[in-house]
């Protein structure tokens, strides 16, 4: 083992790490917002909303992320839309994530006993305050463990965007490996960095859960 390779290339690897985190954060943001809309559409959009939501979810859950990414990257230019790699990457991660996130939200909402809303209704609450004060706070608490899981999956899935040329951690470690002929050291370094980021995410999740349990 020649760890010198890693220390010498650490600045590049860290640059790649920053890109990985940035793209993942952007993907998460897109995924959370879209996911919330899709969830609401499926629950309260009537039969049309339910069907559209179900089709959306089964498409983005059913097609591998790599294929989605390549489709966005190569297909949109055919209809005259030029997609920068970064946009394709964030878009693909966000769309795929939104399908899972919407299901997490939906599951959490369905897990709340019907009586909680009914008690509020009987007291004269408006539909809006029932969502704001009773359903969403509970759904959020219930969804934290699954959301943390989804964030970790998304961060790992971000390694796939190396194929469209975004210089994130996986891509950088590949180039370090090929320029130094030391693949093992380069990939072990990348693996360790992924592990550290995801460990931090899991820890954050535990802290949030504990905080919510206390309040």
């Amino acid at each position: 083992m020649n760890w010198d390779v890693v220390t010498r290339n650490l600045p590049y690897l860290l640059e790649g790490t920053v890109m990985t985190i940035a793209v993942s954060l952007a993907g998460i943001l897109v995924g959370q917002v879209l996911g919330a809309f899709i969830c609401v559409g499926r629950i309260s959009g009537g039969r049309v909303g339910e069907t559209l939501g179900a089709v959306y979810v089964s498409f983005f859950r059913g097609v591998p992320l790599l294929i989605q990414l390549l489709l966005i990257y190569y297909m949109l230019p055919l209809v005259g839309i030029d997609v920068p790699p970064l946009v394709a990457a964030v878009g693909a991660l966000g769309l795929a994530s939104s399908a899972y996130v919407s299901e997490i939200y939906r599951g959490s909402l369905l897990a709340i006993p019907h009586g909680h809303g009914e008690a509020a209704l009987a007291l004269g609450f408006s539909e809006g305050s029932i969502w704001r004060r009773i359903l969403l706070p509970q759904a959020f608490r219930l969804s934290v463990p699954a959301l943390v899981n989804e964030l970790i999956l998304l961060l790992k899935a971000s390694s796939l965007i190396s194929v469209v040329g975004v210089a994130e951690l996986t891509r950088v470690s590949q180039s370090v490996a090929s320029s130094t002929y030391r693949p093992l050291e380069a990939y072990m370094a990348a693996g360790a960095i992924y592990l550290i980021i995801n460990g931090a995410l899991a820890l954050l999740g535990v802290l949030v859960e504990r905080r919510l349990a206390r309040s």
Binding site: P113, G115, H116, E118, A119, I134, Q138, S215
Partner: peptide, 8 residues
Amino acid sequence: QHFNLWPH
């Protein structure tokens, strides 16, 4: 019957 208090 089942109280329906809000657990949070």
